[in-house]
């Protein structure tokens, strides 16, 4: 391309038409920028259309059933026993106000961690059984995934409001921030290597800067979400675990402190942004 006759002619003409030449070069660089932006906009349009009939709703329906049904060895429903921070059984706006500190568990918990905690403590399920298959495959969707989708749907179009004023949550946020900057693994990189500055991308995917509100919301939006590739429903817990895999880190434990802290950092940074509910992914 650089050695094309047109370019050479252009370079030849530069001495006489310097100003015009410079203009042509900057214009072609600009065209590339615009193409990239255009592709991103087109993809957003496609996503908006898909969201109109988002299969996430199917999982939401199952989650609702699970939330209200008496289940587990203790035969109680989550609706009559589980407090997501808004009072027992209350789910309106609960998702956008997590992670938060729960005194009964003495831990900062994200939505999925809290729901699993309720399933174990209130309904009597065994944590090890849940943690054996924590994420969806093409033939299986965990109950917790359906429940998170149901709860998240009841925070649709609400502002993210992680209670960072709570010292316990703030502490979790600080640890999460440290973790995001922690370089390790065979490739020696941290979360921040890709997600700590503006304007980075991998192939065609723009990488959000999770330290900013506008960037962090991109890491929150669309989760839990339906992956069109494979047709499976996945949660924030899964996304975080997959980040560890992509970094070639050892797999974190399901609903562990580590993930809760990272989620506190990311979702906390998105405070004030509007959450659009369960989403749809490529």
């Amino acid at each position: 391309m650089d050695h094309s006759p047109q370019k050479r002619m252009l370079v030849g003409a530069l001495s006489t038409l310097g100003a015009l030449g410079a203009l042509t070069f900057s214009a072609s660089a600009l065209a590339q920028e615009i193409d990239h932006a255009k592709a991103a906009i087109e993809f957003e349009k496609f996503r908006a259309e898909m969201e109109d009939s988002n299969p996430s709703e199917l999982f939401e329906l199952k989650g609702e059933e699970l939330w209200k049904a008496k289940r587990g060895p203790k035969n109680v429903s989550l609706a009559e026993s589980c407090d997501l921070g808004q009072g027992i059984g209350k789910i309106e706006g609960a998702y956008v106000q997590m992670p938060r500190y729960f005194a009964d568990a003495d831990a900062v918990m994200d939505a999925e961690r809290r729901i699993v905690w309720c399933m174990v403590e209130k309904q009597g399920f065994k944590f090890d059984d849940i943690a054996k298959k924590p994420f969806a495959t093409d033939t299986f969707t965990p109950d917790a995934t359906n429940l998170v989708t149901y709860v998240a749907a009841h925070s649709k179009n609400m502002k993210i409001a992680v209670p960072l004023k709570d010292p316990k949550v703030k502490e979790a946020w600080e640890i999460g921030k440290e973790m995001a900057a922690y370089r390790a693994g065979p490739y020696d990189f941290s979360c921040n290597t890709c997600h700590g500055t503006d304007g980075k991308r991998i192939r065609m995917q723009d990488l959000p800067n999770l330290a900013t509100a506008a960037g962090a919301i991109k890491g929150v939006q669309g989760w839990p979400g339906y992956r069109m590739t494979g047709g499976i429903q996945l949660t924030h817990q899964w996304r975080m675990t997959d980040c560890f895999r992509q970094q070639r880190f050892p797999a974190p434990k399901y609903t562990s402190d580590a993930i809760a802290y990272l989620l506190t950092y990311m979702i906390g940074n998105a405070n004030g942004q509007v959450y659009k509910g369960p989403g749809i992914k490529r």
């Binding site: 009939s53 299969p55 199917l58 093409d138 069109m228 047709g231």
Partner: peptide
Amino acid sequence: VSRNPVFG
């Protein structure tokens, strides 16, 4: 037809 299909 895809898994969990949508019809309009």
